[in-house]
């Protein structure tokens, strides 16, 4: 699964996701893309699950780009622990997603297959997504 090799600080504050994705909101590499239409946190497991779905649907041929990276640590306290005693230990990595963000791009496959693969990948994610094509997007 994706995770940073080295970080400056092990724990981060939770933060808020407001606004729209102004960067990373247009197709840069492929012909078809999956775009988030809501905000949410995409975990490294979800990024991997969606990637596997795309590669298994497309089977062979084509090329895929993952446009998000989980660089934010999420902490968790152990089960059955009393509150207090400081922040929990790092548990997982997430990518904060704002609406409009491109998540995956693919090329080199038929349009119907690309749309099917990206739709199935979108079903794995905790927010709403849509499939866009380069030829019909500004």
């Amino acid at each position: 699964m994706l995770s940073p090799k080295k970080v400056k600080h092990r724990k981060q504050m939770k933060g808020r996701m407001k606004g729209k994705a102004l960067r990373g909101s247009s197709i840069s590499f492929g012909d078809y893309a999956l775009k988030a239409t809501q905000c949410g946190k995409m975990t490294a497991q979800q990024i991997e699950a969606a990637r596997i779905t795309i590669s298994r649907t497309v089977k062979r041929g084509g090329k895929m780009w993952i446009r998000v990276f989980p660089d934010k640590p999420v902490t968790k306290k152990p089960a059955e622990t009393r509150m207090g005693k400081g922040k929990g230990s790092p548990d997982s990595w997430v990518a904060p997603i704002k609406p409009g963000r491109i998540l995956y791009e693919i090329t080199g496959v038929e349009e119907s297959l690309a749309i099917k693969a990206l739709t199935l990948a979108g079903n794995k994610l905790p927010f709403q997504t849509k499939v866009i094509t380069k030829s019909t997007t500004l």
Binding site: K20, L22, T37, G100, R101, I132, T137, L138
Partner: peptide
């Protein structure tokens, strides 16, 4: 320059 809505992809 053209400005596009990042969610709706409209002009």
């Amino acid at each position: 320059e053209i400005q596009v809505d990042p969610i709706l992809d409209t002009l």
